[in-house]
Every structure is written in C-alpha cells, then in structure tokens.
Design a protein around this nucleic acid. Sequence first.
DNA 1: TTCCCGATTTACT
DNA 2: GTAAATCGGGAAA
Length: 194
Amino acid sequence: MGDRLSEKVIPLSFYQTGDVVALARSLLGKSLFTRINGELTGGIIIETEAYAGAADKACHSYKNRRTPRNEAMFALGGIAYVYLCYGIHHLLNIITGAENEPVGILLRAIEPTHGIETMLKRRGHPKLPALASGPGSLSQALGVTLQHNKISLDSPTLWLEDGPAPRAIRAGPRIGVAYAGEDALLPYRFQSVC
DNA sequence: TTCCCGATTTACT
DNA sequence: GTAAATCGGGAAA
C-alpha cells in the first residue's frame, strides 16, 4: 500500500518558526522516512543535535560563513542539508528558521520501524542495535546521500511525519565538537529516554 | 595549489 | 582503548 500517511506529514511551516534548539527537542518522537528506488524505510527520531548558526562555534555557518557546502543552511527552513564527513559518512540535517538564518538540526539516531530488511541490507547486516544509531549509520540505513542535499522535507523521497513526544528527554553536550571551545558544552543534544 | 582536519564508524590490539 | 578508512572543504600561501 501507499505507506505514506499524507495527513501526518509535517508541513514545511513547522520548520520555519521558533528557535532551533526547541525544534531539535520537538523532533524527538516524530518519524523520518525515505522512499528510494521504491523502498520505504523509516523510524522514530530518538536523538538530535541543534546547530545554532552564526553565534555557534560548532556550526558550519559560524560567523555566517557561507560556502558551497553549507549553502543549504541559508535557505528557508524545510529542506535537508546533507554533507560528507570524514570522507566517508553522509550526515543528514534538518534546516530550520528563516532565509539567511543558517541553523539546522543534525539527526543522530532513529528507532527503525519501516523497511528494516532494506536498512539491514544497506548497512551490511550489522548487529541490530547499530542499525541506525549514529548520524553516519542513520543516513546509510535510509539511503541518504549527497544527492539529497537541499531536498524538500515534504518530498516523496524524504519526509517527516508527526508522532507522540517521548516520555522523557535527556539533554546534554553535543558529540564530536570539542573544537568549538565553550560552545561544545551547550546542552544542544537531545535524546528520547526509554 | 598545498596542507590539515573533520557534526564518524568499525575493526583491531 | 586505539587506529585506520577516506576525501572534500576551507584556510593559508
């Protein structure tokens, strides 16, 4: 069947107002889907990190630095920002905020719910707990690559659907941003608590 | 053009 | 716990 439940797709307006840290929190419990080559995959978002733009030393757009890579960050909220990290991993971000407000949310982990066989295949059949936990493996499981950079978040290929907020949320410092000095300590990482 | 290094993962010692 | 994989971006020259 058409597994996409259109009435639950999050409208682009959701991403375009409010502050990025609050939005990163509120993405927990919502679902992320891709349909690539007819294969539906998706799961519930359980870990996010906010990247707060010009004032955030950990952010690619710190000091409004604008380059071909991070161009997507400067667009109006509601598109994906995908980039290559360590030459190996594709990292998927949700761009939020107004045009020229370069903020976004790194999706770090989902709890797989749809297309698990496809995700296992893409990942080379890892042990289940590692199927889509970690931003690199999440993108690999969902089939997200650089070609999805700037794609709309309500497209037939990649979209989010509403879902219930988690029972509890844990906040803490972001991962892998030690270079950001004091900004590395900001509690911009959010995880659903089991 | 050169050089350094990264919003990571995985496989080892 | 440590290190290799792997390559484009960004700063410096």
